[in-house]
């Protein structure tokens, strides 16, 4: 299965779904890197109002190819995680549009790494 940059997957809780709610994640890494060792880097989406803060990137339906399942979602930009492709237990749920993804990467670069992630 090809895991592409900008794809959105719901990743199960690392210790099984009984331990907590699975969260959607946006894939940040490119296909070539994802194919290399079957790992990929993704960032977490949540709809929790409690955790909305200065490191949140608010998202809306228009930033994605399909409407989001919940309202008032945001990306927790500092929660960048690494996962195996085999951790994915259900099909892709969405894809982020290019323009919005570029803005997200610029925000992650600037606010999380103090680094210029501007795309070529």
């Amino acid at each position: 299965m090809a895991v592409n940059q900008r794809d959105v997957y719901i990743l199960p809780h690392p210790f099984g779904n009984n331990h907590g709610e699975p969260h959607p994640h946006i894939v940040l890494s490119v296909l070539e890197a994802n194919e290399y060792e079957n790992t990929f880097v993704a960032v977490m989406i949540t709809s929790s109002a409690v955790t909305k803060d200065d490191l949140s990137f608010p998202i809306n339906d228009r930033m994605f190819e399909k409407p989001l399942a919940k309202k008032d979602c945001h990306v927790r930009m500092h929660l960048v995680t690494m996962a195996f492709k085999e951790d994915i237990d259900r099909p892709k749920i969405n894809t982020m549009k290019i323009a919005a993804f570029k803005e997200l990467m610029e925000d992650i670069g600037d606010l999380i790494f103090d680094y210029d992630f501007q795309s070529k």
């Binding site: 990743l11 809780h13 690392p14 210790f15 907590g20 969260h23 790992t39 977490m44 949540t46 929790s48 409690v50 955790t51 803060d53 200065d54 490191l55 927790r76 929660l79 960048v80 995680t81 690494m82 996962a83 195996f84 951790d87 610029e106 925000d107 600037d110 606010l111």
Partner: peptide
Amino acid sequence: RVLRKNTLKQPLTKRSEEAILAVNRSKKTM
């Protein structure tokens, strides 16, 4: 981006469930 980078940061009162989940996922993968 400029506003969020420079604003007064709110002190964190409690580590979120999501942060614990993210760290555990990366740990499990590593």
